[in-house]
Nucleic acid binder design. Structure first.
Length: 470
RNA sequence: GCCGCGGUCGCCUAGCCUGGUUAGGGCGCCGGCCUGCUAAGCCGGUGGGGGAAACCCCGCGCGGGUUCAAAUCCCGCCCGCGGCGCCA
């Protein structure tokens, strides 16, 4: 990224500074995202137009203020009359220019808010297929039928991943849940609530909560402050936390209220310091939020329709960090490493992917995904997403950074990462920890979060039915 | 849901009734002077925006209105506190 602008030395939002100083450079960033660069031209034009009209109006306002103030001082009634007439004339001149300004200001604001974040230099350029695996961990169980594809993706890509070949084909998570274990019912949920809803029962419910407790335990031990946030936000706030596309595709609205259900604790956590200032000596602020997440999944089509991999509601433990601009890269590594630690603790084989520019959300300058190997699908699937939003979110939420030295002002950087998302992680456990007879072993590390409860599963979950042989 | 009171530039607070100097003061913070060092003391700064700068505009919860002029008057909304009602 443009180093000279990183700290927002001017106190300006880094993207606005770049728009003014080097719009062509900003266009290159937008182009990397495979987005239409005309939004930059539009924002640039509106910004210039707005500034020139603003100057003009400020001069008029000044003249009006001067005349208006002198009315109060004038004692002669004739003089007052003349001054008031002059003030009225100026007001008239102002009024139509001001309505024009209002219009342009609104358009400018919209154009600025439509700009995506800049793209970090480390981000691979291209569409989804350009996303780059960086590291592999664990020893995936690879069914012999997936062996060729697995090797193509790992060994032939220069990653020497150790793996275990299995002769039997694992049962998919959806089948495991509903048929082999008999601990989920998405059919009834579909009937009473719609597709992508679910009932979970007994051991799986305990597992859901154990996963949350595990993530809360690990992350709070690292000094992250535990937060239970609001599950709904006002439009004004929600629209500043996320971009328009996300809003449209993910967010549920409460009818008759100015309230929107959160799609992740990231939203209320980011909003915790809405319209406030943070001093550099109190940063970084590290939070771990736990909340249900509600998602419309409007753009998902028929993808992952079975089971609980992609659903309208789930629980999630989320990491969120407010940092200084100079520390955000380091903290981005920290939060993805925390996520790695959580999944290593669970013994789930994963890889870390550096997400390509075309697949980044508008808020992120850089994003790592953690994808877990799914033995029944023969693929790595996303479990965690860790983004560095730099000052994109902070600008929209007016979260200022104040540096003690010289009391200079800028914007903080924000970062977020999944800790554990319950249902999705459960799918990974169902596929990775199943035995040929259908038993699901519970990752050892979760036992201590289960042992306090009389009816919680101990060590493993029993199948009610043998898996169908392949 | 109803009634009453309140929301002031990081925090506390004055101003509001009775519209018109640069929204005054205290605390905190930043910078400077002084000092052997620290403290105290003194001086200045401490919201957003435009401008190279001088300087100017905007800002008193949010949004409207009245007026030449609104923190101040009027209307709507949001939030907080107290009381009443309702529900558990």
């Amino acid at each position: 990224m443009a180093d000279c602008l990183r700290e927002g030395a001017s106190g300006l939002w880094s993207i606005l500074a770049l728009l003014r100083e080097n719009p062509e450079e900003l266009k290159r960033h937008v182009a990397k995202r495979l987005m239409d660069t005309s939004i930059v031209d539009r924002a640039y034009k509106l910004d210039v137009e707005w500034r020139s009209l603003l100057t003009e109006i400020n001069q008029l306002r000044h003249r009006h203020n001067v005349v208006s103030r002198s009315v109060g001082k004038a004692s002669d009634p004739e003089e007052r009359k003349k001054l008031i007439a002059e003030a009225k004339r100026l007001l008239e001149e102002l009024s139509h220019k001001e309505s024009k300004l209002k219009r342009i200001e609104k358009e400018r604001e919209e154009a600025l808010l439509a700009l995506p974040n800049i793209v970090d230099d480390d981000v691979p350029v291209g569409d989804e297929s350009s996303s780059k695996p960086l590291a592999y961990w664990g020893r995936p169980k690879v069914w012999k039928g997936f062996l060729e594809a697995f090797r193509r993706e790992t060994v032939e890509n220069g990653f020497n991943v150790d793996y275990e070949v299995i002769e039997w084909k694992p049962v998919g998570h959806a089948d495991m849940l509903e048929n082999v274990l008999g601990l989920g019912n998405t059919l009834k949920a579909g009937e009473v609530a719609g597709s992508r809803f679910y009932y979970l029962f007994e051991d799986i419910v305990w597992l859901d909560f154990a996963l949350l407790l595990y993530a809360m335990d690990v992350l709070t031990s690292k000094g992250y402050k535990l937060v239970l946030p609001p599950y709904m936000l006002r439009y004004d706030v929600m629209s500043r936390v996320i971009d328009l596309d996300t809003f449209r595709d993910a967010i549920y609205k409460i009818e008759g209220e100015d309230l929107y259900l959160i799609a992740t604790a990231e939203h209320p956590l980011a909003a915790l310091y809405y319209k406030s200032e943070l001093y550099d000596d109190e940063l970084p602020i590290k939070l771990v939020g736990v909340s249900p997440c509600f998602r419309k999944e409007a753009g998902a089509g028929n993808r992952d329709l079975k089971g609980v991999f992609r659903v309208h509601q789930f629980h999630k433990v989320e990491q969120f960090v407010f940092s200084t601009p100079e520390d955000s890269k380091k903290l981005h590594e920290e939060i993805i490493n925390n996520a790695r630690e959580l999944f290593e603790g669970l013994g789930l084989p994963y890889r870390i992917v550096n997400i390509a520019s075309g697949d980044l959300g508008a808020c992120a300058a850089k994003k790592y995904d953690l994808e877990v190997w799914m033995p029944a699908q023969g693929k790595y699937r996303e479990m965690v997403s860790a983004s560095n939003c730099t000052d994109w979110q902070a600008y929209r939420l007016s979260i200022r950074l104040v540096r003690r030295k010289g009391m200079e002002r800028g914007y903080v950087h924000t970062l977020n990462s999944t800790g554990i998302a319950s249902t999705r992680t459960i799918t990974a456990i169902l596929e990775n920890y199943q035995e040929p007879d259908g038993t699901v072993v519970i990752p050892k590390i979760l036992n201590k979060y289960l042992e306090g409860f009389k009816r919680a599963p101990k060590g493993h979950i029993e199948p009610v039915r043998k898996p169908a042989t392949t």
